[in-house]
């Protein structure tokens, strides 16, 4: 099933992110307004390679986005496509006016990378799919309770894994995957609850 830009915008609408002057749910979001990475433009403190914010590609920011996408590759079902644009658009919108949330994501991604390096001597994004999953398993991210203030596995669960799962399963396409076209958290109207199943 194809994740679309519209899915990302709908998921963003469910998290109160105003993009393009509040035009989130419309199709007239300025072309290019959501390009770039969520972690560019002075992403985090202690970051020696921060971008100047003038549109230049920021290697570190791209790396962080690549790490986020590598996690999506593990936690999203294999049948969905369009993940890169979906995640990029969603994460950019989520972090645009929430510096603390962006800090939390950046720190959690760094923690994940640290574990990957200590066990496999490589960044998380550079591991093969099986090894990526094993890193999350070794950290016990699957069994841990998400906690934005917690230890590494708890923050990875909250800021990375659950961030991605929240985006997917509050989007129309994510809902459709499970069998409801108006998932909780998505303002999909007050009609679908009246309809019977399709089959």
């Amino acid at each position: 099933m194809e994740l679309s830009r519209r899915d990302a915008l709908a998921a963003l609408a469910a998290s109160s992110v105003a993009v393009g002057g509040g035009a989130v749910l419309t199709t007239d979001v300025e072309e290019g307004a959501l390009d770039g990475t969520p972690f560019g433009g002075g992403a985090s403190s202690g970051d020696d390679e921060r971008a100047s914010g003038d549109g230049e590609a920021d290697p570190l920011a791209e790396d962080r986005l690549a790490t986020l996408l590598a996690v999506a590759d593990v936690v999203y079902p294999s049948g969905v496509s369009g993940v890169e644009e979906f995640v990029r658009t969603y994460a950019l919108g989520r972090t645009a006016d929430r510096p603390e949330h962006r800090e939390g994501m950046v720190d959690a991604l760094a923690a994940l990378d640290e574990h990957a390096r200590s066990w496999h001597d490589a960044a998380f994004r550079d591991l093969d799919a099986e090894t990526r999953e094993s890193v999350l398993d070794q950290m016990a991210v699957d069994a841990t309770n998400p906690d934005p203030e917690g230890a590494d596995p708890e923050r990875v669960r909250f800021y990375v894994v659950n961030e991605l799962l929240y985006a997917l399963y509050t989007s129309p396409t994510g809902g459709e995957l499970v069998g409801l076209e108006n998932p909780q958290g998505h303002p999909g109207g007050a009609d679908s609850y009246r309809r019977g199943p399709r089959e």
Binding site: V74, Y76, P77, E133, P146, Y166, Y169, G174, V178, L180
Partner: peptide, 23 residues
Amino acid sequence: PVEMALSGDEWGDDLLDTLREGY
């Protein structure tokens, strides 16, 4: 489904299977 996904102990296709079964 979203609440199941966020508190589950699986992901990927396994999670989706569980969500489909649970919802």
